[in-house]
Design a protein around this nucleic acid. Structure first.
Lengths: 202, 202
DNA sequence: CAAATTGAAATTGTTGACAATTTCAATTTG
DNA sequence: CAAATTGAAATTGTCAACAATTTCAATTTG
């Protein structure tokens, strides 16, 4: 169980990303308190970077903060709220993909293909945290490329939506949807891309 | 210029709220770096709580963070992005107000009236930070009352949208719009409330 | 003299110590 | 015996010191 290979130091960014995908993957229970000290030990850092990560995840909505009581995992969201968020996310990503198709160059397309491969590989390995992380990374690609302003809003939506439905079901379907999105983007077919996105996000 | 009255200690929450309304009010220039040390001195605390506030404001989008370079004020957003955000915010608040009308009790209505008065008072005082803060507080009321999950998403949108258009123009119009929203809510007229909201947010 | 290099000052990143608060089981009280 | 009280343990909040990094003006180099 111990790590024998050399591990680069964990920064607050890395810790935040790791905790986020763990949370999305359901590794912690809803309402479970997250303790600074135990996580500081786990990552081999002091409490400072852990607190930094907690703050970020709190703002994104996966954690809930209470004064002098620390943070706990957020409760599951209601179906109705999820629907509202899903619609907002769909609107946002439609805008981004449409613009991405206009603006992206060869290099972007290359990155896109890499991210798709990583997603497919995670699916085949059946690793829920890896699937969650690579799914996020793929969608994040076209959002970030189009607008740094929209990215944090998108992330907040995506994290909360994923937190509820993150079982390893319909993996085959999900792979197909993402393949269709990427393919349509590469051949610059907006209509097909937006349609594939909608079927992935509804 | 010095403070003579007793000032309760600044916590990261208070600092965050103060900086947010300052940012919305345009007290800092776009792309201007925010220094931890100078703000720590201003609030009479160590750098820790300032860093906490920076992280939160970064996630909300008013500040931009770069490794080893700290945070700076975000650049203004493009009109096109603002339109996307405005639509998302409108959808979100429509849902919240509609649900708020169903669920709110007498006490909620009382708070609503208080917040409206504070907004009007800030407008009459011509204080841009106070206007920005009380405008946010009013809208936040019906969002938070309906869903703790949607609140941080809403805040991210509201902060970014306000950052661009926060001059003291059309104050009379804005007062009237907010009065119409609150009045329609109190008499539980959804149609009128949503219509008033739309004219406020478009 | 333009471009590269150096180094001190400024700034951010991380840590461990201590203060303040909360929690919860053991004890006291009516 | 139920309810209130106490106090130690656990946990979060804040701080000041030090490490690592960036910045930028002064110096060197071709």
């Amino acid at each position: 169980m111990t790590e024998h290979q050399v591990q680069t130091k964990y920064t607050r960014e890395k810790i935040c990303n790791i905790l986020r995908s763990d949370l999305i993957a359901g590794k912690f229970n809803h309402d479970q308190p997250m303790r600074e000290i135990s996580l500081a030990k786990r990552f081999g850092v002091s409490r400072g970077p852990i607190r930094d990560a907690f703050l970020k995840l709190t703002q994104e909505g996966s954690l809930v903060y209470e004064t002098n009581r620390g943070v706990r995992v957020h409760s599951a969201i209601a179906d109705e709220e999820r629907k509202i968020m899903m619609n907002m996310r769909l609107d946002l990503e439609k805008y981004c993909i449409s613009k991405y198709i206009d603006e992206a160059d060869q290099k972007d397309h290359g990155e896109l293909e890499v991210l798709l491969e990583q997603f497919k590989s995670a699916c085949l390995r059946d690793s829920l945290p890896a699937v969650a992380e690579s799914d996020l990374a793929l969608h994040r690609h076209w959002v970030t490329r189009v607008s740094k302003n929209l990215e944090p809003i998108w992330l907040g939506l995506a994290v909360r939506i994923l937190m509820k439905y993150s079982r390893l079901e319909n993996i085959e379907e999900s792979i197909g949807e993402h393949e269709r999105i990427v393919e349509a983007i590469v051949v610059k077919n907006k209509e097909r891309a937006l349609q594939a996105l909608a079927s992935n996000l509804i």
